[in-house]
Computed example of a mutant assay.
Amino acid sequence: MIALGCILQKRGWFQDSFGNDLSKLIQSATPALAVLPILVN
């Protein structure tokens, strides 16, 4: 996955702000993913 990301970055598939956008998405989704197993059981 990391190698694929590096290759796609070099080919210009991602904008410069992609890293920041992805970080914000992960930070907002992580708490929901942590609570989900509790709600399912």
Rank of each mutant, 00 (worst) to 15 (best):
L4T: 15
K10S: 10
P37C: 04
A3S: 08
L25H: 04
T30S: 07
I7E: 03
L33E: 01
S28C: 05
F14P: 00
Q9Y: 09
A34K: 13
R11E: 14
L25K: 10
P31M: 06
A29G: 00
G19Y: 05
K24W: 02
D16Q: 11
L22I: 07
Q27F: 08
L36P: 06
D21A: 08
P37K: 01
Q15L: 07
A3Y: 05
L8V: 05
Q27I: 14
Q9W: 11
S17M: 05
I7M: 04
I26R: 00
P37D: 00
S17K: 05
T30V: 15
I26Y: 01
Q27R: 12
M1S: 15
A29W: 05
I38V: 14
Q27K: 11
G12M: 02
L8C: 07
L8Y: 06
L8I: 01
W13N: 02
P31V: 04
R11W: 15
L4Y: 12
I26M: 07
I2Y: 14
L33Y: 05
V35C: 08
Q9H: 13
G12F: 04
N41H: 06
K24T: 05
N20V: 10
F14A: 02
I26N: 00
S23F: 09
V35F: 09
L4H: 04
C6K: 14
A34Q: 13
S28I: 14
S28N: 02
A34P: 00
I7D: 09
W13D: 03
F14Y: 11
V40C: 07
Q15T: 09
T30I: 10
A29H: 00
T30N: 06
L39N: 00
K24P: 00
K24H: 04
K24C: 03
G12N: 03
Q27V: 08
V40E: 06
M1R: 08
P37I: 01
I7S: 10
A3F: 13
F18P: 01
T30L: 15
R11I: 15
L4N: 12
L33C: 09
L8Q: 12
K24D: 04
L22C: 05
L8R: 10
G12H: 02
F18G: 01
F18D: 01
F14S: 00
I26W: 00
R11F: 15
I7L: 09
Q27L: 12
A29P: 03
I26H: 00
Q15I: 04
D16R: 08
I2W: 13
D16L: 04
C6L: 14
A29V: 07
V40F: 12
T30D: 00
M1F: 13
F18V: 02
A34S: 08
K10R: 15
A3C: 10
I7C: 08
L25T: 13
L33Q: 04
N41V: 07
N41L: 10
D21M: 11
K10C: 10
A34M: 12
D16C: 05
G5M: 11
L8K: 13
Q9A: 13
T30W: 11
G5L: 12
D21Q: 15
A34T: 14
S28K: 13
Q9L: 07
A32Q: 08
L36K: 04
L33G: 06
A3M: 06
G5Y: 08
K24F: 05
F18A: 11
A32M: 11
F18I: 06
S28L: 10
M1H: 08
F14V: 00
L8A: 02
G5F: 13
